[in-house]
Nucleic acid binder design. Structure first.
Length: 478
RNA sequence: GCUCCCUUCGUCUAGUGGUUAGGACUCUGGCCUCUCACGCCGGCAACAGGGGUUCGAAUCCCCUAGGGAGCGCCA
């Protein structure tokens, strides 16, 4: 057997913002291609005219690019097997419909939606698996004409005749076998003329020379249909692999109530691409270790036999861990992009890098940085109850000593925290936490944060003095 | 209802007949320290249950329970 190049694809329907489960599918397919030095294709399955929207495809391309995914062929960048939107591939499909119709592998089906639903219901309540009953399977020319006369719009249905089970080797689940009786005839062209999933998806994979289809296990049962279809047409079928789905933290299928379920939401919440990628690599895929990996390293160690068959829970705590890892790897320049224009202007240029390095360990998301800009370069936040307690307990005498010590620094010089604490200690006898905490609260309005001296060093000396003076004796307390 | 798949700490997972069942996240104790975070060192915590097979089973077989998927003119 000649060695085929590895070509993978991601084939979403642009009916909304791309879901995290699909993002993982896209990611795995890119890794598989990259691992083998192959190609990765993006194909838009927008045959559902009602729900598919061009803006969602644009959003998907943008979000996936933001994540760091790249494809060699796609609706946004073209390629040798286009078009890459199924809505534009109708003409390509028609010859295949004709062939199937001629060979008898497909037939026109005039059953209405209502009739089919009813049939399913009847079979289900009789304890039988719902299958197409075969009403239109052997229609004579006259019977067809009668139905046409009634104005019925036919679908094209693929015929699954009795015979040997359909077997295939699944990349992650091993050998699979499906009895033909369990498959049932399925629709390949809708009444409105558009391609049904089974058809467009399978045909395009073959026409685009896709070699490996990695998808969620919800597609396992579709695979024998697609193989049968491609066989009937004499087209080459790709190798299929089905990994387990992601589930929510409660083990139930992922839905909106599990928090951020679209990539866009994750992005808007401030999660970093590397965090998401590192997390996803380990969801349903065993990684060699728990270390941070760059995209190239992930591709190097990605293997289909490392994919799991048990559902993996999507756990935000774990994502949070990778977010911290990603954050610590951010350069000062990258971190600066977390500041909006207003905040950026409040931080003096020469202090910027030092400021970012200082607050970095206390951050998780972009919104977290704003409060530190306020503390160091803006207005003091209003103290909360516990903060006020520290101030009250310390008393005016404490701050009188503190502000005097601070003002003794020559104008424009950074006040020394040690000089201030020494003075306060001498005046009030306070020590340890009782000494530092009131000072911290007075200067930052908070009980947490980076080292006091580091904070003071970045602040305007006048601000330091002002904040202390405000609490000193003789200053009217509201 | 029928078919298929799955089940190791709370979570992600290592493990393919002989391990003190390992790592990571969470939680937690300590160190560092003015505080929080970071960092470092520890701790709690699992083979779903029951039967076999075997000298020996998380690993192999069967049953039960629980979970997931499919059975669309949705993809």
């Amino acid at each position: 057997m000649e060695k085929m190049p590895v070509i993978t694809r991601f084939a979403p329907s642009p009916t909304g913002y791309v879901h995290v489960g699909n993002v993982r599918t896209a990611f795995f397919n890119q890794l598989l291609a990259e691992h083998a030095g192959g190609r990765f294709i993006l194909r838009s399955e927008d045959t559902d005219q009602e729900r598919s929207k061009a803006e969602y495809l644009e959003a998907l391309v943008e979000d996936l690019h933001w994540l760091g995914l790249r494809w060699d062929e796609g609706p946004d960048c073209g390629g040798p097997h286009g078009p890459y939107k199924q809505s534009e591939r109708g003409e390509l499909y028609s010859q295949y419909y004709d062939r199937l119709l001629e060979s008898g592998d497909a037939y026109l089906c005039y059953c209405s939606d209502r009739e089919l639903k009813l049939s399913r219901k009847v079979q289900l309540s009789a304890g039988r698996p719902p299958r197409y009953s075969g009403t239109c399977r052997e229609l004579s020319a006259q019977e067809r004409a009668e139905r046409e006369a009634q104005g019925r719009e036919p679908t094209l249905r693929f015929r699954v005749s009795a015979g040997e089970p359909v077997v295939f080797e699944d990349l992650v689940r091993g050998s699979q076998s499906f009895a033909r009786e369990d498959i049932g005839d399925f629709v390949i062209r809708r009444a409105d003329g558009s391609a049904a999933f089974f058809f467009g998806n399978a045909i395009d994979d073959s026409l685009m020379q896709v070699s490996h289809v990695l998808r969620g296990e919800d597609h396992v049962a579709n695979t024998p249909r697609q193989i049968l279809l491609l066989q009937a047409l004499g087209l080459r079928a790709p190798v299929y692999g089905h990994f387990s789905l992601m589930v929510g933290d409660d083990g139930a299928p992922l839905s909106k109530r599990h928090g951020a379920s679209s990539l866009r939401e994750l992005r808007q919440a401030g999660y970093l691409p590397g965090a998401i990628l590192n997390h996803f690599l380990r969801l349903g895929h065993k990684a060699a270790n728990d270390d941070w990996l760059e995209l190239e390293q992930m591709a190097a160690e990605f293997h289909t036999n490392a994919l799991g068959r048990a559902p993996a829970r999507y756990d935000m705590d774990q994502l949070g861990h990778w977010q911290k890892e990603a954050l610590m790897r951010l350069s000062a320049h990258e971190l600066a992009s977390w500041l909006d224009d207003g905040d950026r202007n409040r931080v003096p240029n020469e202090q910027l890098d030092a400021f970012l390095e200082l607050v970095k360990p206390n951050l998780m998301f972009p919104v977290d940085i704003k409060v530190w800009v306020d503390v160091l370069f803006g207005e003091l936040p209003v103290p909360g109850e516990t903060e006020q307690q520290w101030l009250d307990n310390a008393g005016a005498e404490f701050f009188t000593a503190a502000s005097e010590a601070a003002s003794q620094a020559t104008s424009g010089e950074t006040p020394s925290v040690k000089a201030i604490t020494d003075a306060v200690k001498a005046a009030t006898g306070a020590k340890g936490k009782q000494l530092f905490m009131p000072l911290r609260v007075a200067l930052t309005g908070r009980t947490d944060g980076p080292g006091l001296q580091d904070i003071v060093s970045l602040m305007n000396p006048a601000t330091v003095e002002k904040r202390l003076k405000k609490l000193a004796a003789g200053q009217a307390e509201s």
